[in-house]
């Protein structure tokens, strides 16, 4: 019999119901698109005439931002329910999330593709599948920076696919990212460092116990974290640039997170 470390089981237990998240976000985005649709209601039309302005149709990029924003809400919800995180004061919780929100967003995307298991298509958090043809079109329209980042993401997916990273390991990675011991000025610094060490130890124990034939699996997994961090940093820079040029829809958690790190 295999003994999965209790901590790893606890991490899996704290995972959100994917279908619930999917329903919540797809409903939200459907409403949003309805609101933004040029001919949605008579009231809207009247308003448009009055303001003499065409309602702006949500661009693909704008839609992606809303999707990322909604994903962030679900990430915060997840963190709130996490073992260890609950014990921290809100100030420390905020500092940890400010530090890692984009890494958790990128990991969320990557993990979804990984467990989706279809190399040719991309699965969105809404449950929609982007077909290879649509994906190619999107890449062509995206511009060099964005398409480069998406491709970098796909490479990371492939690497983790080769490793066959499982769901329990994915859950551990989320904790390693959340409890980053490099975050400074925490009220409870030693607690965060201690949790990080505990998660590290649990993941090591898990890989040795479940995959004893691959003794370097643990380090192989950890080696992907700097790549993830680099990609998320690039995504943040890109979002900042888009935000400054007024292309990111406003009043949301995404922008608040962008500001928090830059100020």
């Amino acid at each position: 019999g295999l003994t999965v470390p209790a901590l790893v089981l606890e991490f899996v237990r704290c995972e959100q119901d994917e279908l619930q998240v999917q329903n919540k976000i797809s409903t939200h985005l459907a409403h949003l698109q309805q609101e933004q649709s040029p001919r949605s209601t008579v009231a809207n039309q009247e308003q448009n005439v009055r303001h003499a302005a065409k309602p702006e149709r949500l661009t693909t990029f704008g839609l992606m931002c809303h999707m990322a924003d909604q994903t962030l809400f679900s990430i915060v919800e997840w963190a709130r329910g996490c073992i260890f995180f609950k014990e921290l004061k809100v100030g420390d919780q905020m500092k940890l999330l400010h530090n890692c929100w984009s890494e958790l967003l990128v990991l969320d995307y990557i993990a979804r593709q990984l467990h989706h298991g279809k190399a040719e298509s991309v699965l969105l958090i809404t449950g929609q599948e982007v077909t290879p043809v649509e994906f190619t079109t999107l890449l062509a329209q995206a511009g060099v920076t964005l398409s480069g980042m998406i491709q970098r993401g796909q490479e990371l997916v492939h690497r983790l696919q080769e490793l066959q990273l499982d769901r329990r390991e994915t859950a551990c990675l989320k904790y390693l990212i959340l409890f980053n011991p490099d975050v400074k000025l925490l009220e409870n610094q030693s607690y965060v460092e201690n949790v990080y060490e505990q998660v590290n130890a649990a993941l090591l124990e898990y890989t040795l116990c479940v995959y004893p034939q691959y003794p370097d699996r643990f380090s192989q997994i950890l080696m992907r974290l700097p790549e993830l961090r680099a990609l998320s940093a690039q995504s943040e820079d890109y979002l900042c640039y888009k935000h400054l040029s007024g292309e990111v829809p406003c009043n949301n958690l995404l922008i608040e997170m962008l500001h928090a790190k830059r100020t």
Binding site: M94, H98, L253, E256, M257, H259
Partner: peptide, 17 residues
């Protein structure tokens, strides 16, 4: 700066029910 973090603080602080 504080105003910038209002939404996150609210989300972390709010009661579950």
């Amino acid at each position: 700066k504080k105003k910038d973090n209002a939404l996150l603080r609210y989300l972390l602080d709010k009661d579950d029910n």
